[in-house]
Structures are given as structure tokens and as C-alpha cells.
Amino acid sequence: MRHHTVLETWLRGLAIAVIVLFFMFPIFWIVLMSFQTNETILRSPPSMAFVPTISNYEAIFAGRLDSNVASMDIKFLGNLGNSIILSVGSVAVALLLGVPAAYAFARHKFRGSEDIAFTLLSFRFAPPLLVLLPLTTYFQALGIADTYFGLIWVYQLICLPLILWIVRGYFEDIPADIEHAYRTAGHGWFATFRKIALPLAMPGIAAAGLLAFIFAWNNFIFALVLASADKQPVTVGALAFVTASGIQYGQIAAAVVLSIAPTLMLALYAQRYLVEGLSLGAVKG
């Protein structure tokens, strides 16, 4: 144990402030950009002083992109909806499949269980582009190319291994004796899974789910190849802002703010839950 002098406390505060500034600056800058026109953004030297405008947000909600040269339709809100459907859908499916699988891998060691678990992880090794070409052909043959179903299926390559490996670790951290105690008390294995393992691993499941959600949300390449315009998520949809008449920085910034908002809110909400879950503590002993 050590105690801190006033100077130490002060220096620590300063260091934290510098780090926060460093990491938060891009987000801060984007938020500023989203309230400016292309002209004020691109002026040189850059300045923090400007008259805020909400025209960028208006354009996105109206679905019309007006530049000084031409105007065009964009479907950003549609993209946002797609992103939510795809991310929520794939995380839900991944949790449904991954959590019981993780429990099985953690508790029931059988011949080859390590190999299967590793194979699932190895899905993450291959470069997505390599997988995509054959996948596209198959999906077209099966008729599931350009469907939410097909996309959510492909997204499992991202979400499932993540959830499986993180949650498995949390299940392994629950002392086996706690589950033995519940079973010898007279409860079946499924009740034990539901009433003991699940609640105790919940912080881990939440963390893994959040992480999987962020990865799914930020995915670009799968959706770019496999989804047509009306199934595209925001990551692909944002390409629309690169127009023949130039790049619409203001609208891009507004789109970025809107697209990071759900993940950010989710993360803030989950953080509170994660801390609660961890402070529940005393799982060991």
C-alpha cells in the first residue's frame, strides 16, 4: 500500500486529462464538423470559431443531399436501420448459439473439444476477402445473397468466435464446486446452467455481447460485397457521401455522429452493468 502526496495526485490528474484529450479529440472534432458547412470545414487555417448549423442533420433526415453542384437522394436512415437489424440480429444469434457452446466447452471436456473450439476461433484467421468470393457464389446459388438472413449468417464469422472464447473464460472462472453444490442440492443440469452459471457469467456475457456488437456494427467488407443498396449498413452507406462533386465532409461527420451514437449509448449503459457485475464479485471463494 502507498499513499499519495498532493503533487502525485495532481500529476495523475494531469496525465489522465492528457490521455482523455488524446483519445477523445477525433470524436470531439467530428462532432464540431457535423455542425459546420463544407466551406468552414475546409478553410485554412482551421478554426474552432464558426456559426453552428444543423443543415447536415436536416439533409440526412430529409434523405436529400444538396451540394452546390447538384442534389441527390441518400438513404442514410435506411442504412442506419439496416445496421441495427444486422448487428442486433447477429449478436442475438451468436449469444443464443455461443453461450451454451461456451458452457459446454468450459465444463464438459470431451475428446476433441479443444480442437473444435480452436477451429471456431480459426474462422477469424482467414482474411475476409479470401472467404468472400466463394461465399458470394454459394449464397447466390442458395438464394440467400442480399438477405438479412444471409448477412446475419455471415456475421457469425465475426461474432460467434468472439463470444465463444470470451464467455468460455468466464464460465471457467466460476468454481465448479458452486455448480456441484447446486446440483447436489437437487437441481438438474439445465437449472444449474440457468440459475447459477448464467447469472454469474453475466458480466462476461455482457462484455462479449457488447464487443461483438461493435465488431458487427463496424463491419464493412462483408456488407459491401454481399448486400445491395437496400440492405446496406451505415459503414457501406457512407460511401454515398463521396460524390462526383466532392466529398461532403459536413454530412459525413453528421452521419458518423449518428452512427456511433447507438454503440456509444450501448457501451455507456453496459459499462454501468459491467461494473455492477464485477463488484458483485466474490464468485471465487
Binding site: 458452486i178 453444490a181 437437487g186
Partner: peptide
């Protein structure tokens, strides 16, 4: 099996 068991590390359900 109808047994009662007490564990060395107590194994109480923390939640």
C-alpha cells in the same frame, strides 16, 4: 442421489 454436501470453500451461491 439425495445427498447433502458442504464444501471446503463453502461454494455459496454469490448472487
Amino acid at each position: 442421489r439425495g445427498v447433502g454436501m458442504a464444501f471446503q470453500n463453502f461454494a455459496l451461491f454469490p448472487h
